[in-house]
């Protein structure tokens, strides 16, 4: 079943900026889906339209078969949204914010309080329930928005940059929480700048750039498109110039560090054999960028105006 179907969606703002150009996208029920793109690519506009915060210029959006045009109420009830910016009343108490949101979905007060307690406990905010929202740390505020988005038990959870500005420990715990939610059958759509996050959490991915979907596939197929992977090698002894390696592009970063571009068709062993033949020992190695990041940059750069097609 399709959780979210977007057909020929377009959006032109009043100032003439064309944020979305006829995009189409499907997210299946139970998927963990990543929507990636550089700043201003159209991610937040897409999410804004799906969550009814932005009026579309054209196209159609359906949520579990309910059209936003004709069955808006039913569609909205199935969606939970965690926006990029904090959008709660900073002076209200944490508990009141979550209970009130449940009330806006028509959940009676008693049940709303139970639901609020359930999600505030799950997200480690129960001890802060009587604090004003402004007194929370940045990470807590983000968790509060997740609790608020879940309080009406939506089937589709949309998170716009949920871990932006969150420390590593908290980011990992949020990943675990989202993975658990996905395991319970919730469909999750995530936009993020942390490509490592998308690679480790999401099974399907779409990349949007300049209002156009430039890639829409599963993570495995996407990573297979990566033709060249760049590795950083830390050397045991300093070298004065980059060694010439047959079949590989090598760059000297500093006297103890090499950057080697390895085509997918070449074995990594080949690099080490050639280095060993030149008496160069490698102490450690790592990816220059995460694989998805490397691919993302290639796709987005290709789409830049004036860039030539590969």
């Amino acid at each position: 079943m399709t959780a979210l179907s977007i057909r020929h969606l377009s959006k032109t703002y009043a100032n003439g900026v064309e944020a979305l150009k006829d995009i189409s996208l499907d997210v299946r029920k139970g998927e963990f889906f990543a929507l990636l793109g550089p700043n201003g690519a159209g991610k937040s506009t897409t999410i804004g339209i799906v969550s009814s915060l932005v009026n579309k210029s054209g196209g159609e959006v359906t949520v579990f078969g309910h059209s936003l045009d004709t069955e808006r109420g039913k569609a909205k009830r199935l969606i939970g949204v965690v926006p990029q910016e904090f959008n709660f009343n900073q002076f209200e108490k944490v508990f009141d914010i979550v209970v009130t949101q449940a009330g806006f979905y028509g959940i009676p007060a008693g049940q709303a309080r139970q639901q609020a307690e359930k999600y505030l406990r799950k997200l480690g905010l129960w001890d802060k329930r009587d604090s004003a929202a402004r007194q929370l740390s940045g990470g807590m505020k983000r968790r509060l928005m997740i609790a608020r988005a879940l309080v009406h038990e939506p089937e589709l959870l949309i998170l716009d940059e949920p871990t932006a500005g969150v420390d590593i420990e908290l980011r990992r715990s949020m990943w675990d929480f989202l993975t658990e939610l996905n395991g319970l059958g919730k469909t999750i759509i995530l936009t993020t700048h942390y490509l490592e996050e998308a690679e480790s959490l999401c099974r399907r991915i779409a990349i949007i750039d300049h209002g156009v979907i430039v890639e829409n596939t599963d993570m495995k197929s996407l990573l297979e498109k990566l033709q060249v992977e760049t590795f950083i090698l830390d050397l045991a002894e300093p070298v004065t110039e980059a060694p010439a390696l047959n079949g590989f592009e090598v760059r000297l970063r500093d006297e103890r560090t090499l950057e080697v571009a390895v085509p997918k068709s070449e074995a990594l062993n080949n690099v080490f054999q050639q280095l060993a033949a030149k008496d160069i020992s490698v102490m450690s190695m790592r990816n220059k960028a995460n694989r998805l990041e490397e691919l993302f940059l290639r796709l987005v750069e290709r789409n830049l105006p004036g860039e030539s097609q590969p």
């Binding site: 915060l53 009830r77 926006p83 949101q101 806006f104 979905y105 608020r148």
Partner: peptide, 18 residues
């Protein structure tokens, strides 16, 4: 206006409230 300024108006706009 306060809800507009703080963007908490979005709490209502995303909900099915008429």
């Amino acid at each position: 206006y306060g809800t507009k300024f703080q963007h908490s108006i979005e709490e209502m706009l995303v909900s099915p409230m008429s």
